[in-house]
Nucleic acid binder design. Structure first.
Lengths: 366, 366
DNA sequence: ATGAAAGCGCTAACAG
DNA sequence: CTGTTAGCGCTTTCAT
């Protein structure tokens, strides 16, 4: 077996080298209070000299912490998760935690999930990014009182710690922005409607229309799934069938790309003929041409906040579930223009981090 | 401590339930040969009924496998790593391995790396994606005879298993493609020159020029680092200073985006004024406008192959290091045109998976 | 074919 | 303050 590799230096070696019992070493290493300063020094030195590294498995087996956080993600292929993970990573690194990644699309069934995470007890806590069917295992997690945080997806039972963003308000703002540019016929590409973010965004869109006395039209709702190909297909079909809208609000940036593609393939231009606005502000949003005007979610920050929240929860298991909602903001780039634009006169790109309009808007009704 | 959570069902419970000793259970669970079929069944049933799940830490502590692969990545923010990881993930899932991710940019020093991975013995093997300074720890890994595979970065000592692509040939092909379109003055944006891929691509470019009797000009070499901002900055400066080339070959797609941006900000057009070709074919390449013509690296496949290779190595530690080089291919989209194009008449987009030209080219000199 | 027993490296009472 | 002693759950000899 692989264990035949040269024996690593253990707590026992350190104990021997520093002339104390190995439980003392353990105490020192764990920052126990009542240790004579001199022994502490001796132990620390020995550990350093021997190049001692804790064996996490043993530690965790023995009831300590594994210093590992499990991260459940659907996949890495949407430019969105990646940003969140960056934030998670930053915060975890700071607290000296490592990351165990579980991708969901491979799931051998709902069990596998909490089984992996809890049953084998490897991780001290779990971060769930956009879980599709959390209900299946949330109960299990809660029963075990296992620390976890949901990112960008709310728990119907409202009993989980959640980090999300102002989806409703963001969508409201996006829609209002388009309206203020003079648009009236504004199509809306939905996200995957099973996700809470998708319905919240749809509601925000509807609310903004309503507040500006624009009747909601069902025909203007294009059913997407948060992925580019679907948005492309559906939008293309839409443009064949109905008179073109002057603006399209896509529920996320990926969909917005699909929309722009469909517009282009229809011989139309963005933003001259049809304005397009997205949601998320993934890195690609400022790469595409024209640069995408969108509602920014502070992805990296979401990751950081979620990680911090989880760490707190691990530290203090009694702490009640919290929900932290971060603000979105409108980032104006080049993909939207006034309704009757004669071309080319759309707004100037704003600096990535600066280009936000912060305005008031009605509170989301509960 | 968190250990106070309800005791999980262990091998002992299963033993009790099936009326055998727990070492027998262990044997059954590990697919040991000499077990009476009837007991095997009994054990399996009991395990199933009780919902037994192996505790990986204990198993691994006791000398077994942890079923965890460590993945060392620089970060997730380039659209490139993500694709590779997808491939890794697929293969690992198949073999029932989990993924432990270490991001390098946070590195607390070179030690931390192999320390994390080996010293604490959590993982059964290590996948290193584009490590920047592998020399620092490769020795340690080799000495421990610890299974690892390098992805997209070669080992100067040539003693590691590595999975990479035909960088030289890819660059050669890209350059030749531009030459065949009539370009003569072709600028080249380098990658981060510490990486083997970067120098291989530069060499490929030079070779193609040479073979077509185009003198190599130092002034046409723009020093990049594989990142968009740098490419933008340097290209912009280049365009200020020198007469514009008719084509630019960027060492990776991200840089190509920067190049296109610089071209645009100079009031020029791609591909009408300047053709641009990239390398990698990251997902964004087909999203940008104009769609980027590029050399595709089979990223996902690289991940899969690397994972498989690693698994083999874990299975059979004696197996010598192998190097697997996957083929790149030219993917023609819209960012390149003939030299004197009068605009608009660039080539048609090819389907993503179909648009490749497979042609012969001289073998890379050793 | 299967049981008994010795750890793997560490934490956490329990005694001094 | 520090040493002693149980385990944590599992793999692996060594017997039988």
């Amino acid at each position: 077996m692989r264990n035949k590799r040269p024996r690593n230096v253990t707590i026992v070696d350190v104990a021997r080298a520093s002339g104390v019992s190995y439980s003392t070493v353990s105490r020192v290493l764990n920052g126990f209070e009542f240790i004579k300063e001199s022994t502490r020094q001796r132990v620390l030195e020995a550990a350093e000299k021997l190049g001692y590294v804790a064996n996490l498995q043993a530690r965790s087996l023995a009831g300590g912490r594994s210093q590992i956080i499990g991260l459940l993600v659907p996949g890495l292929d949407n430019g969105y998760i990646g940003e969140i993970i960056r934030g998670v990573d930053v915060e975890l690194a700071r607290a000296n935690y490592d990351l165990m990644m579980y991708t969901t699309h491979r799931s051998r069934g709902k069990e596998s999930i909490y089984v992996n995470a809890i049953a084998n007890g490897l991780s001290d806590g779990l971060l769930l990014i956009v879980p599709l069917v959390p209900a299946a295992y949330l109960n299990a997690l809660r029963q075990e009182n296992f620390p976890y945080v949901l990112i960008d997806q709310s728990d119907a039972a409202k009993q989980s710690s959640v980090v999300d963003t102002t989806n409703w308000q963001g969508a409201y703002e996006a829609t209002r922005y388009l309206i203020e540019l003079g648009h009236q016929r504004i199509a809306f590409v939905t996200g995957l409607m099973e996700l809470s973010s998708a319905s919240e965004r749809l509601e925000g869109y509807k609310a903004a229309l309503g507040d500006h006395n624009i009747p909601f039209q069902d025909e203007l709702i294009i059913e997407g799934d948060y992925w580019q190909p679907e948005a492309y297909k559906k939008t293309f079909a839409f443009l064949e069938q109905y008179p073109a809208p002057t603006a399209i609000f896509a529920s996320n940036d990926l969909s917005a790309f699909g929309v722009m593609e469909a517009i282009r393939d229809h011989g139309l231009r963005t933003p001259e003929d049809i304005s397009v606005i997205g949601f998320d502000d993934i890195p690609q949003a400022s790469i595409v041409y024209p640069r995408l005007t969108t509602i920014r979610q502070p992805l990296e920050q979401m990751g950081r906040v979620a990680a911090k929240l989880l760490l707190e929860q691990i530290e203090n298991p009694e702490q009640p579930a919290r929900r932290i909602t971060l603000a979105t903001q409108l980032v104006i780039r080049d993909s939207c223009g006034p309704r009757q634009a004669k071309g080319g006169q759309h707004r100037k790109t704003l600096k990535k981090t600066g280009g936000s309009l912060l305005r008031t808007f009605p509170a989301k009704p509960e």
